[in-house]
Design a protein around this nucleic acid. Sequence first.
DNA 1: TGGCAAAAAGTTAACGTTATCATACCCTCC
DNA 2: GGAGGGTATGATAACGTTAACTTTTTGCCA
Lengths: 344, 344
Amino acid sequence: MTVSRALNRPEIVADDTRHKILEVCERLNYRPNANARSLRTNTSHQVGVIIPDWRNAFWIDVVSGIEAVLTGAGFQLLIANSNEQGRREDLQIEAMLSQSVDGLLIAPSDGAPSGDSLSRIDELLAAGMPLVIIDRLPAGIANVSCVTIDNESGAYKATRHLLDGGHRRIGLLAGNINLDTGQQRVDGYLRGLKERGLAVDEQLIRTAETNAALVGREVGYSSTLEFLDMDNAPTALLCTSNTIAIGAIAALQERRVQIPEEMAIVSFGDMEWTTLLSPPLTVITQPTIEMGRQAGLMLLEYLEDVPEDGHKRHRKQRRIVLEPQLIVRASSVRGAAAKTIPDD
Amino acid sequence: MTVSRALNRPEIVADDTRHKILEVCERLNYRPNANARSLRTNTSHQVGVIIPDWRNAFWIDVVSGIEAVLTGAGFQLLIANSNEQGRREDLQIEAMLSQSVDGLLIAPSDGAPSGDSLSRIDELLAAGMPLVIIDRLPAGIANVSCVTIDNESGAYKATRHLLDGGHRRIGLLAGNINLDTGQQRVDGYLRGLKERGLAVDEQLIRTAETNAALVGREVGYSSTLEFLDMDNAPTALLCTSNTIAIGAIAALQERRVQIPEEMAIVSFGDMEWTTLLSPPLTVITQPTIEMGRQAGLMLLEYLEDVPEDGHKRHRKQRRIVLEPQLIVRASSVRGAAAKTIPDD
DNA sequence: TGGCAAAAAGTTAACGTTATCATACCCTCC
DNA sequence: GGAGGGTATGATAACGTTAACTTTTTGCCA
């Protein structure tokens, strides 16, 4: 009816008719039914976002970046927390498709039973669903657009910084190395050592089964205690996530280990509290908000790429890799002033 | 058609028909359309959650509690961040109603232009929409169910603790006192002083215009510096939020003020990092997750209260007030041992 | 004034479900 | 063998919107 036109394309309705309609809408407290609209148009102005753990500030920041871009463009976010469980992730994708979301932003969980949600993602791509993968890129997925962080480079920078500080035995508290991000951080660490011709001591590398926040903290704590009990304990610690770092620092404080004199420490992810610690924490910043922003923008391109011929256009796959930065603070430098190391 | 029955009420369909149907669904990759279903049934299994600031860990924890309860009961969460802006909150409620959410959980923003979203909430209640207010209860709303924290009690406990420690001049870094939570914290502080017959020095009470995280931090920082510059500076600080505390601690560290010898500090909200500080931070715990859980359960009661007669049942209003706890750590107690300094 | 194009408004059907009612089928029992 | 009662399935309409098409109105010019 004309009402629909008055609300959606006011310019093609005569002025006084429009005013009359709007006035009546106002009086009747009329509210368009989004479900009916979605049913008819097969578009919802909703975008699904699936993250693995929203108790971790990392992911909240990512979502903030996404939100800034997408709600600005008139999309509503459907946020789901997979809790690092592939099965949940799968169900959530399913639920979002049921609601005919216009697009999806997914950070694959580390617990994906490989086949399951990967093939689901392949299906989505084949169906032409606008989709951008964030932060993690499981090996099995090809031809997908994604925004990630150069974890290898981040870990390398951290390792080199510690080596420059004279450390020769550096403990690596890695997350789940079944995840590409986890493995990349190990790779960066190894590159740092190799570059200096240092042998790798497998005992100095600890991994976790999952990246879930609570587990990270626990692993950081117990692994650090184990390090401290070694005959030739490391003199520096590289923590590959803020949750791991929290556990590690707790362990060091408990044992009254002096930072950085007895143990230097570098962590991943700058948090609001890292500068409040004594000493302040050296970190590899994760450009989380920016990652969210870029992923949002990328998805937006796809969303605005209207399929005029009714058939989904074959889209070029794009990949953005963001560079992490090293911020040197006192936790990793013996008696020296802290400064930011410029990118090289 | 029979398909609908096979999927929704399998027990009333003959076994072999059902199997045939399910097999075909599988083969065709059939997925029920949630919009069509919502349109027809006028129910969406979605619950809207509106919080004022998801960059603040406080709210993320609240949402976690809500999620634990509601997704377990088969509801999907629609999370919106009002950014402490009444106008956004209003639009978000509107959008959620368009999508025929089954219920709403709202933490009213502090920037509500009083009339606007309050009357909207009244409307919702009148229309029988299941609705639970969380954490904050604006003065204008009556007859609504809510789950809150006893802020007055929390601030009182903190104040009493500091008074017990011998402090006589306690700086109060309050948030937005136009918000009931903010005013209640001031009230608790005043009760503490009054109980000991101490005069109130208005100069020791600082408030903020809004509870937005960034502002909180800034206010904590600058107000603390102002305190330190006073002729008779306070010897203790009561911060009414974790963001304010972050700013305050930053200021104290910058001025190299010894905690707790020169300035004791108590904060609201226990975070994962509060024990990592030197000294560890004394806090009033906010039962955030529990608040979310209770709000979720309360809403669930309303949701399950099916209107058999087609007319919304008049429901009893319920209120739950959760009690915060004082956790004493070294930031508020002089000397290694946590011993109480006798009164006068 | 008639004719014609453009603008505005109206009509119809369809999106994919499910509530409701109608039908077909199968058994049991007198 | 037919009435009665259950169970399983089928048919129809409706939820509120909009795409596509049709009709009406308006405005303009010859």
